[in-house]
Nucleic acid binder design. Sequence first.
DNA 1: CGGTATCCAACAAGATACTG
DNA 2: CAGTATCTTGTTGGATACCG
Lengths: 125, 125
Amino acid sequence: MTSMLNAYNVYEDRCPTRLLLDRLADKWALLILDRLQEGPVRFNRLRRDIKGISQKVLSQTLKKLERDGLVTRAVFATVPVTVEYSLTPLGQTLNETVSAFAHWAERNMDAVLAAQRAYDEAGAA
Amino acid sequence: MTSMLNAYNVYEDRCPTRLLLDRLADKWALLILDRLQEGPVRFNRLRRDIKGISQKVLSQTLKKLERDGLVTRAVFATVPVTVEYSLTPLGQTLNETVSAFAHWAERNMDAVLAAQRAYDEAGAA
DNA sequence: CGGTATCCAACAAGATACTG
DNA sequence: CAGTATCTTGTTGGATACCG
């Protein structure tokens, strides 16, 4: 047999995977997921490490990732309170993909910059 | 030796990789790159296959991907004109990552939906 | 420390109409 | 077929201020 009825398809407009893809295909979400691969991290540590992220966006993104079951939030009753974020097992299944994305950008930046220059020069001619 | 000076770092605010990550971490860009893995595709075919994408967004996204050196645009002087988009060798190096993303969403949608329900129920309590 | 609430400017994107 | 141009709305995200 070829396969069962395919329930989900990202190419379909109304498929719920579209919403999920939209949430994950986000610069901040990817950086958070990538950073959490090294283990549990506190809120303000994430804020410092992911340079340029605002408190609001960090908070919002973490909440969405938590709702999607990718991230766990653990509260410790210290004074002042300590909050640690970690990847769930589900979240960890994205590790390789997330890393690949970030590393790709770093490794191929020069090639992309060269392509941009070539494109812009051709357009200017 | 451990490594050379790391020129690029996505965790840095001003790093050019941030701009690149922002462009690639996009639902439409990912779907386009994924669709192009099967070979050259014409404009309106992409438009039909990636359901819900507007002509404007498709055009804009393709132009950015072309400028970044990930996609090539080939024009054939038929009547009316035919335009084919393909992945460049650079663009093809992203194939696995892009596929992983889309497939992840499709494979784990049920788990995510379950997590969302659990989260929402807990919040309602 | 770890957030929330509010305001606001900027940008993205959908709809629509038109063109070589 | 393969776009561009324009308009208008909706959403994002930065800045700021405040709270348990």
